[in-house]
């Protein structure tokens, strides 16, 4: 299959897209724009849809984990956290299979790479 260039993805992802597309149409968005949005996600092998916050049961091992191994988690940097004062590359998150998606503090968003972490930062991460 790989040799043929085929891509395998859980069927739920495509139904998610269909559902979202239908809602966007109902919200009076032009069909061409909706189609373009959905195709963009398909072209990215559904990556934006693959990682999500699993429910608390799934975190302890559930069927959902098999179909969708990537999951989102948030981490709040409290006072005294070992990450304070370190930069992203210093922590080598990628090496541990964790991808940093978003860094925010209150309403402000920070660039994921060039940030030196401080108390109150909230990190949204994805890992498998």
């Amino acid at each position: 299959m790989n040799a043929a260039g085929a891509e395998v993805f859980p069927e739920g992802l495509e139904s998610s897209l269909a559902f979202a597309g239908q809602l966007l149409i109902l919200l009076d968005l032009p069909p061409s724009r909706v189609e373009a949005r959905l195709n963009r996600i398909r072209a990215m092998s559904h990556t934006p849809l693959r990682a999500f916050f699993h429910d608390s049961d799934a975190m302890h091992g559930d069927g959902e984990m098999l179909d969708y191994p990537e999951q989102m988690r948030t981490l709040v940097i409290d006072e005294g956290h070992f990450a304070i004062g370190r930069t992203v590359p210093e922590l080598n998150l990628t090496g541990q299979g964790v991808e940093l998606i978003d860094v925010r503090r209150g309403a402000a968003r920070y660039a994921c790479r060039a940030t030196c972490w401080m108390t109150g930062f909230v990190l949204a991460m994805c890992w498998c």
């Binding site: 739920g12 139904s15 998610s16 559902f19 849809l49 999500f52």
Partner: peptide
Amino acid sequence: LGRVGQNL
């Protein structure tokens, strides 16, 4: 807010 809800 399952998978579909979050994607939406």
